Simulated assay, not measured.
Amino acid sequence: MSMAIQTGRALPAIVKLFAELRRKCRMCPRVERFWLWLNGCYCSTLLKRAFWRLIILPIHAWRLIIQNCPPDHPGLIQDTNDYYCEYDSTWEDPTSEETSRKRTNNVDRRMPNLQFYLGQRASSPDGIYIEDFHNNWYGDYSKLERVHSYIQWLFPLQERGMNYQAKELTKKEIEAFLEDETAKKRLVKSYKLMLDFYGIQLSNDTTGEVRRANNWRDRFDNMDRNTHNNLRITRILKCLGTLGFPHYQAPLVRFFLEETLVKGNLYNVKESVLNYFISAVIVQQQRKELVEYAYKLYEVKHQFVVPKKTKSTFREGTFPRNKNPIDLKPDLKQNGIYSDDSDDNTTSHQSVSLC
């Protein structure tokens, strides 16, 4: 009876131990790479799970216990601060030099997007590191068009995207990203990679000014055919505003306004420019100027739709200050002037699930 009582008391600790082992095993880079390879194999999900639970998990857990138990307490697994430690540092002496080095050189595992941009982890499920994207994917237009799981890693946001294995940005992660020059420089390289894909070139790294690239005709045709790129561009704009490059937003939006409203290109991008690209600009004054610029270029002015996020900037008066001002006060909407305040999913920027 006493044995049963002791076992019952120890059971919660045993369950907690195995839960911790499973979590630590999943954080192991070798196991992660193997799991990515296993997912690429053509076998049933049930078989994959069985292989994981019956073979990989027990072997890896046993290796961690045998190799990392402290010598003075061979059966005890000690807790340390996971904020700083590697996947197997829980079983190390917290005062060791190796643990101190890991605490200094490694980013918190709760910051996966920053880890990715510092080259400390690969994207998921593709298993590609940031330098590989920049070196091997630049100019590979078919791959950039066909694959849909990389954009959430290159341009992370605080909202969920189509890749469920990508992680949302947190406030602490944004703060850490803004202080890391290496991550920010690599974000600019990611931006240039996607601009090239769209037939655009960053002409000034300081101001964010852009212009047509030499291959713009072919790339513009691709944008017109594949309208999911409109969602990608919205994500890129929002990411730039979040991670330290808000001055890059307005020049890109202005470029698209000129291409769509003045030069008559990108017919299938035009509505996204007016309804979503402008609204993604984080600086209020720049949004206002872009709306005024768009209205100036718009042919049928009485049909102009003011982006929802920008409408509040004009509530106290009219814009633009010319011969045909638009009064945005609610009681004058019957004059044929519209704003996208409706809850319709086709016009509400909030309702779009970004690529």
Results as ranks from 00 to 15, higher is better:
residue 313 T to A: 14
residue 353 S to K: 15
residue 142 S to W: 11
residue 165 Q to D: 15
residue 279 S to N: 08
residue 14 I to C: 11
residue 271 E to F: 03
residue 114 L to G: 00
residue 38 L to A: 10
residue 237 L to Q: 03
residue 240 L to W: 00
residue 145 E to W: 01
residue 340 D to F: 12
residue 270 K to F: 04
residue 239 C to W: 00
residue 144 L to N: 05
residue 253 V to K: 04
residue 318 T to V: 08
residue 118 L to G: 01
residue 207 T to W: 04
residue 38 L to W: 04
residue 331 D to I: 09
residue 66 I to F: 13
residue 301 K to E: 05
residue 258 E to S: 10
residue 52 W to Y: 15
residue 4 A to S: 12
residue 317 G to Q: 10
residue 296 K to Q: 12
residue 321 R to I: 14
residue 207 T to V: 05
residue 48 K to W: 06
residue 300 V to Q: 13
residue 324 N to M: 15
residue 41 C to D: 07
residue 206 T to P: 05
residue 318 T to W: 01
residue 47 L to K: 03
residue 195 L to Q: 07
residue 275 N to A: 07
residue 322 N to V: 01
residue 191 Y to W: 13
residue 34 F to L: 08
residue 95 T to Y: 08
residue 349 H to Y: 10
residue 350 Q to D: 13
residue 303 Q to Y: 14
residue 182 T to G: 02
residue 265 N to F: 01
residue 178 L to M: 12
residue 274 L to K: 04
residue 35 W to G: 04
residue 346 T to G: 06
residue 68 N to M: 14
residue 310 T to S: 11
residue 55 I to Q: 13
residue 288 K to F: 13
residue 139 G to S: 13
residue 328 L to G: 02
residue 82 D to M: 07
residue 128 I to M: 09
residue 73 H to P: 10
residue 202 L to P: 00
residue 240 L to H: 04
residue 3 M to C: 14
residue 157 L to D: 01
residue 248 Y to A: 02
residue 19 A to L: 05
residue 198 Y to I: 01
residue 80 T to A: 10
residue 31 V to I: 10
residue 207 T to Q: 00
residue 353 S to R: 14
residue 146 R to F: 06
residue 342 S to W: 03
residue 147 V to M: 04
residue 32 E to F: 12
residue 159 E to H: 02
residue 255 F to G: 11
residue 42 Y to P: 00
residue 7 T to P: 03
residue 118 L to D: 06
residue 193 L to H: 03
residue 126 D to G: 03
residue 306 V to N: 06
residue 161 G to F: 03
residue 178 L to W: 03
residue 247 H to P: 08
residue 169 L to F: 03
residue 96 S to V: 06
residue 302 H to W: 11
residue 310 T to L: 09
residue 215 N to E: 12
residue 224 D to T: 05
residue 123 S to Q: 01
residue 7 T to H: 13
residue 246 P to S: 10
residue 61 A to G: 00
residue 112 P to I: 07
residue 344 D to A: 07
residue 155 F to Y: 09
residue 271 E to D: 14
residue 181 E to M: 04
residue 124 S to H: 04
residue 344 D to M: 13
residue 113 N to I: 06
residue 138 Y to S: 09
residue 285 Q to N: 07
residue 179 E to Y: 01
residue 247 H to Q: 14
residue 179 E to G: 11
residue 1 M to W: 09
residue 159 E to T: 09
residue 172 K to P: 04
residue 161 G to P: 02
residue 326 I to P: 00
residue 153 W to N: 07
residue 351 S to H: 11
residue 228 H to S: 15
residue 340 D to I: 01
residue 69 C to L: 05
residue 305 V to D: 08
residue 328 L to T: 12
residue 4 A to L: 13
residue 321 R to Y: 15
residue 26 R to F: 14
residue 188 V to Q: 00
residue 157 L to N: 03
residue 90 T to H: 08
residue 242 T to L: 03
residue 119 G to I: 06
residue 228 H to F: 10
residue 209 E to P: 01
residue 98 E to N: 15
residue 261 L to Y: 09
residue 51 F to V: 12
residue 150 Y to N: 04
residue 337 I to L: 11
residue 291 V to S: 00
residue 90 T to V: 08
residue 152 Q to R: 09
residue 190 S to Q: 10
residue 342 S to P: 05
residue 352 V to E: 02
residue 114 L to D: 01
residue 37 W to T: 01
residue 145 E to H: 12
residue 299 E to A: 10
residue 251 P to R: 02
residue 193 L to V: 09
residue 263 K to C: 05
residue 235 R to M: 11
residue 146 R to D: 12
residue 158 Q to A: 14
residue 132 D to Q: 14
residue 202 L to C: 06
residue 221 D to R: 02
residue 4 A to W: 07
residue 130 I to A: 06
residue 287 R to N: 03
